[in-house]
């Protein structure tokens, strides 16, 4: 598994994409933190610097996290199937290790990206709110597991990229709609998607963590049955 994690992690890290993502997330986080601390609109929140410090980072990832994670890693598994490299992996290690390695690498990449942003924002705002970062990591684990499941389920990359964009746009819309609406037809989705826990009820992130585990288990089961 170690080799797969290293290969996948550095595959995501190298190149201009990761630098742009880090710059984008950090930039928005810093700007929004500064804006919230100075704007009268957020006077209440501004009285608590711990709230404003990572609000920007959470905000960016809640809105764009699914889109970023899905579009960047939608082909984590099916790329190796399509390019006929998967047989070289599954003849050396278990299929579970392949899926677990892909998941860990995607999650580690996003954990590293958020960590970098967190350190920069914390340095600027002079606050250190570790639990916010942990919430983000649970949320990102959920997205990474869905991404691996999608990539295992959809064999062709052309289809997985379309689905990843659609899911990346639809998920936050449905998630936030359900989180802030009591009577909407999608209200029940607040207990399935991680947006309500992220915005209102962090304790429900335990459910999100369980869901991530289930999605990963489903990906492993699917991959084990796949004829490669």
């Amino acid at each position: 598994m170690k080799g797969i994690v290293i290969r996948e992690f550095f595959g995501l890290m190298k190149g201009i994409k990761s630098i742009l993502i880090i710059l984008f997330i950090t930039g928005i986080s810093v700007l929004s933190a500064r804006y919230m601390s100075s704007s009268s609109l957020f006077a209440e929140e501004a009285s608590n610097p711990e709230t404003t410090a990572l609000a920007g980072l959470s905000f960016v990832l809640i809105l764009f996290g699914a889109l970023f994670v899905f579009t960047l890693s939608h082909d984590a598994v099916n790329r190796d199937i399509e390019l006929q490299r998967i047989r070289l992996l599954i003849t050396k290690t278990s299929r579970t290790s392949v899926i677990a390695g892909k998941f860990v690498a995607i999650w580690l990449f996003w954990a590293a990206v958020t960590m970098i942003s967190f350190v920069i924002v914390s340095a600027i705002t002079r606050t250190f709110v570790i639990h916010e970062l942990l919430y983000l990591w649970v949320y990102l684990a959920f997205l990474a597991s869905l991404c691996v499941l999608l990539s295992t389920l959809v064999t062709h990359r052309t289809y997985s990229v379309i689905l990843s964009v659609l899911a990346g746009i639809a998920m936050p819309i449905i998630g936030l709609w359900s989180a802030f609406s009591q009577s909407s037809p999608v209200a029940a989705a607040r207990y399935v998607l991680p947006y309500y826990p992220m915005a209102e009820q962090p304790v429900l992130l335990l459910v999100t963590a369980v869901e991530a585990g289930l999605a990963l288990a489903a990906a492993v089961m699917l991959f084990r049955r796949k004829e490669l």
């Binding site: 290969r7 390019l83 006929q84 490299r85 047989r87 070289l88 003849t91 050396k92 290690t93 278990s94």
Partner: peptide, 18 residues
């Protein structure tokens, strides 16, 4: 089989590389 994959070597057909 997973427990002995270290002890076997495989050249599959139609395999590709990075």
């Amino acid at each position: 089989i997973n427990s002995i994959k270290r002890r076997i070597g495989v050249l599959p057909d139609n395999s590709n590389y990075y």
